[in-house]
Design a binder for these strands. Structure first.
Lengths: 240, 240
DNA sequence: ATCATTGCTATACGGCGTTCACAATATATA
DNA sequence: TATATATTGTGAACGCCGTATAGCAATGAT
């Protein structure tokens, strides 16, 4: 990232790589993730399909890079949403995060499908995950907010019997490094919060809400209010 | 459904239709939704790809029928789960429903993707929806349970300002027909409950939970307990 | 000025959905 | 029973797709 572009060749190479990715995203945004075809991209760029193999080993490879890029953009959006609220007001931060999550998904449905759905026909994700870094970023933001809210929230979750062994060791290690005093119940809560946001959003993006609901944003706002209550915060409707 | 099979031709036709669908589902279960290819199905059946066009106008048509079948199977499972608990115990019913939802998804991940994700490369759902009936069945079950729980749950949702205009008119009409006294806030709640179940399940099915969580079932159970609390029910851990 | 590397084209292979002309078969009719 | 009709299948073709390989042109380094 941000490496010094040395030779002219390098510069051209990066420019073409960027153009390929941009063209792929353009096709995806206008015609769906299934429209990411090497031939179509090359055609659009005035090239032959084979030429792309100088830049990406395979189509799946290109898709993997796109997923990572898009996921990182989402993570950036979510971090910005968190930072748009005072750092000592986790309730406001969680609402901002939730709104940003849905707003982004609704504004970029194909990007959402790329990251959270079946990316593309026949695509097989590589071994060690594709966007582990971005996924960790997005997750860390949420955990951080929940950690800040935990003092006031924990009394609502006294029944939970989570242990660190419920989580992936590596993941648990990272969390405990960043938040040494956070109990496993809080980590579980943050993942459940994620699930709660994801549920309505993915139903909406995949068209399972529209047939019944005319105002999904309102439904989502209600859910976010309820969610913030479960983080121990009582607040009047200040959103919208 | 259940029509009298008259001629021998009709019988053969229905048998072949069923075999096509079964083969498609078999391929899907073993190789993913993208593996639903007319050529592969025909090859497996000892036929030519073109022959399938005597039974289905197009591949998308076949996929639509599969979606409807699978969705109806899911709806049946959910109805059975509800009926496995006393009809005067909505808390138990909602837990059973939620468990059945996840169990089904985890046991049939490709079916889940077919119904709730991008079904298949390039697939475009037809105009009036594909499985409106099944979707309505599944939704009605949930609404029924929430309706039964509403007397004890409503005090937790006094702040909500939902109106019937927040919903699709046709959908609202059907609901008000079945549950004349149910306020719109309860309908919103039932859709939010759906979203809450769907969130963790779809994250898990699409592989976004495994990297962090070693025991998704436990996380989901915790979420279901919390959910049943928001339906106004206090209960000890009787599940599992 | 020479030579290796790189970026690209051209071509080919197999797979896909779909269409069409045609043969074989089963049904319905006279 | 003999004939006409509808249905179900084949096989070849079209235009897509991802991918692999060979060769050509231009660029960069020596």
């Amino acid at each position: 990232m941000g490496e010094v572009t040395q030779s002219r060749r390098m510069r051209l190479r990066e420019a073409t790589t960027a153009e390929i990715k941009a063209t792929a995203l353009k096709h995806m945004a206008s015609s769906g993730t299934a429209a990411i075809s090497l031939r179509a991209i090359a055609r659009d760029m005035g090239m032959t399909a084979g030429a792309i193999y100088s830049y990406f080993d395979t189509r799946d490879n290109l898709v993997s890079v796109l997923i990572a890029d898009v996921y990182n953009a989402l993570a950036g959006t979510l971090e910005a949403a968190r930072d748009s609220r005072p750092h000592d007001d986790p309730a406001a931060q969680i609402l901002a995060y939730g709104q940003a999550y849905r707003d982004w998904a609704v504004a970029n449905p194909e990007e959402f499908r790329l990251v959270y759905g079946d990316p593309v026909p026949d695509y097989q994700p590589p071994e060690g995950g594709v966007a582990a870094e971005a996924e960790h970023r997005a997750c860390a933001v949420l955990t951080g907010i929940v950690a800040a809210a935990w003092p006031k929230a924990q009394h609502l979750h006294i029944g939970s019997d989570h242990t660190w062994s419920d989580f992936d060791p590596g993941f648990a290690g990272l969390i405990r490094e960043s938040f040494p005093d956070l109990p496993p119940a809080a980590v579980a809560l943050s993942l459940r919060v994620w699930g709660r946001m994801h549920g309505l959003v993915s139903l909406e993006v995949y068209g399972h809400l529209r047939p019944q609901v005319s105002d999904p944003a309102k439904l989502y706002r209600a859910e976010m209010m309820d969610l913030s209550k479960s983080l121990g915060h009582v607040l009047v409707d200040e959103a919208h």
